[in-house]
């Protein structure tokens, strides 16, 4: 399983951090080109692939991929 976040288009609204029922995401201390703090994948093992973050991200930045 692989979770990627597109830092280029993330606007730092933090919806994904709160929407994830397992608390996989956390806010990083780096800034992207908007000057906002983007999320990063903290506890990948906890992810249960509900894909709620994918649909809740208003900018479509998060991609959750199952390994074949």
């Amino acid at each position: 399983m692989n979770i990627t976040i597109d830092k280029m288009y993330c606007k730092g609204c933090e919806i994904c951090v709160n929407a994830c029922p397992k608390g996989v995401f956390a806010i990083s201390q780096e800034r992207n080109r908007y000057g906002t703090f983007f999320p990063w994948v903290m506890e990948k093992e906890k992810c249960m692939v509900c894909q709620l973050c994918e649909i809740m991200c208003p900018d479509g930045c998060i991609n959750v991929e199952m390994e074949a």
Partner: peptide, 10 residues
């Protein structure tokens, strides 16, 4: 940032 329109689009 945080607008609901993106979620409707998704």
């Amino acid at each position: 940032p945080g607008c609901g329109n993106g979620i409707v689009l998704n």
